[in-house]
Write a protein that binds this DNA or RNA. Sequence first.
DNA 1: AAGACGAAAGTGGTTGA
DNA 2: TCAACAACTTTCGTCTT
Length: 322
Amino acid sequence: MDYTRSTEKKKNTGIDSSSKPLKCPECQSASVVDDITRGESVCGGCGLVLSDHRIDTGAEWRAFSAEESDARSRVGAPVRYTIHDKGLSTVIDWRDRDISGRKLSPNRRSEIYRLRRWQIRSRVHSSMDRNLAQAMSELERLSSQLGIPGPTRELAALLYRKAIVRKLVRGRSIEAMVAATLYAACRIRQKPRPLDEVADSSRVDRKKLGQCYRLLLRSLSIKIPLSSPIDYISRFASELTLSSPVQLRTVEILRQSKTMGLTIGRDPLGLAAAAIYIASIMLDERRTQREIAEVARVTEVTVRNRYKEIVKKLGIDSMNLG
DNA sequence: AAGACGAAAGTGGTTGA
DNA sequence: TCAACAACTTTCGTCTT
């Protein structure tokens, strides 16, 4: 048996420049550097500290050779929350062959049969596990339908586990709870999906979903950043095939609107839609109100109202709108 | 003819007594 | 629990491009 692990032999220099091409929101410089030893992300351009409480995911031990590194590593396969037993279980193959492909001896074979039977029994041994197994497959279905990335699914799965432990699922439908955790996970990751969109993809109505979501927040006391219209624009813009200058202009419009107090109490979706509408006209990539309203899941009227308000308050006159 | 506009009535959710 | 309320939707007739 070969237990060799693909151990990364990257030296921990403290500065990890290979991490990701992050852009600084202030100066748009791409030279953002992760300083792992200090747990900060710093913009190389303007020195802005982007986040100052990153978690150092590196090991707390040091190793001076590959063997030492292997010996100290406590890592196996990653724990996966989307698999109902966290992917930790041993799986007994259904074939009556050993690893080199030989047939098993009769004795061994009956032993394996017994083990297999027990595995099947134990895998879904309690009601909680049965629930989880069902929930995870629903989560898988729902998130692939919505195109939710893996890490967010994992977060949703983790939330669901917490919900189960707190007995929040009892008396509620698994589907509704799964949808709620997924919705919450998206918002935590600042990639919110409209509630309607999630509701449509699952067989849960909006109201139930909203209730479960609120229950989730209260019971698990999760703090979720207020959803900002800005979080929606990249997705909407790509659905409308708008260029990135339009996106930047949209963000600018939204920032200004916020300082003018136009955003309080307003549906972020409507605001995002209106800002995109204005930006698209300004930069001569006009989209109709209906097109935008459709992707933002609001009505044309709302787009219109928001856009009128913004134009009026920000002093964007018809000259600028071309 | 399509898109934009605005008025008016209806809807679902929040708030405060 | 209920009414008041703000935001949003639906619907529809009219104006603009």
